[in-house]
Computed example of a mutant assay.
Amino acid sequence: MKRIVTYPAIFKPIDKDIYFISFPDVKGAVTEGHGLKDAFSMASDALATMLYDEKKLPKITNPKDINLDDDGSFVALVSADLTSAADNFEKTVRKNVTVPYNLATQAEEKHMNFSKILTEALREKLNYQG
């Protein structure tokens, strides 16, 4: 039986045709996409990554109740198939890391996903094929 969830996401334009996406109800579910098609795909992946093994799902905010900045941001509903995600994702663990302040600041300004970057770097360093 498929387990599909839908949550409101905030799409904020950060550059020409690049969107930063966050979920007000799902802490840590942030990503970015290049163009709307990619942004929606990345948003669905981020949502699935954060929720695929959660027993109790966060409460869903009514999209009409989400306040937006006057910067072109918009709210859209994003769905994710948690059943497929559980099959495709590895179990994750939270790690606390320390990085130089200037790198962290620059990365945050560019809305970079630290978890994704660290995972990619570890896979490359370890020649991980899984």
Results as ranks from 00 to 15, higher is better:
4 I>T: 15
7 Y>P: 13
8 P>S: 07
9 A>N: 05
10 I>L: 06
10 I>D: 15
10 I>C: 14
10 I>Q: 11
10 I>N: 12
13 P>L: 06
14 I>E: 09
14 I>R: 01
15 D>Y: 02
16 K>A: 14
19 Y>V: 15
22 S>R: 13
22 S>H: 09
23 F>Y: 06
23 F>D: 12
23 F>Q: 09
25 D>W: 07
26 V>Y: 09
26 V>Q: 12
26 V>G: 12
27 K>P: 06
27 K>I: 10
29 A>N: 09
29 A>T: 08
30 V>K: 15
30 V>L: 14
31 T>H: 05
33 G>Q: 12
33 G>A: 12
34 H>K: 15
37 K>F: 13
37 K>C: 04
37 K>N: 12
38 D>K: 06
39 A>M: 09
39 A>Y: 03
39 A>H: 05
40 F>P: 04
40 F>H: 13
42 M>Q: 15
43 A>M: 10
44 S>V: 05
46 A>Q: 01
48 A>S: 11
49 T>S: 11
51 L>H: 02
53 D>N: 15
53 D>Q: 11
54 E>N: 08
54 E>R: 15
54 E>G: 03
54 E>L: 09
55 K>V: 14
55 K>A: 09
56 K>F: 07
57 L>K: 07
62 N>F: 05
63 P>Q: 09
63 P>V: 11
65 D>A: 13
65 D>N: 14
66 I>W: 00
66 I>D: 04
69 D>F: 06
71 D>F: 03
71 D>R: 01
72 G>R: 01
72 G>H: 01
72 G>K: 03
73 S>P: 04
75 V>R: 02
75 V>K: 06
76 A>V: 00
77 L>H: 01
77 L>Y: 11
78 V>G: 03
79 S>T: 14
79 S>A: 13
80 A>H: 01
80 A>N: 05
81 D>E: 08
82 L>M: 08
82 L>Q: 03
83 T>Q: 07
85 A>V: 04
85 A>T: 02
86 A>P: 00
86 A>S: 08
87 D>S: 10
87 D>G: 02
88 N>R: 04
89 F>E: 00
89 F>V: 00
95 K>Q: 12
96 N>S: 14
97 V>W: 02
98 T>F: 04
100 P>Q: 06
101 Y>A: 14
101 Y>N: 08
101 Y>I: 10
103 L>Y: 05
104 A>P: 00
104 A>D: 13
106 Q>H: 04
107 A>V: 10
108 E>G: 03
108 E>T: 06
109 E>R: 08
109 E>Y: 01
110 K>Q: 11
110 K>G: 03
112 M>R: 08
112 M>P: 00
112 M>E: 10
113 N>Q: 07
116 K>E: 07
117 I>G: 00
118 L>D: 03
119 T>I: 04
120 E>N: 13
120 E>H: 08
121 A>F: 04
123 R>Y: 08
123 R>K: 14
125 K>N: 13
126 L>K: 11
128 Y>H: 09
129 Q>M: 07
129 Q>D: 11
130 G>V: 02
130 G>W: 10
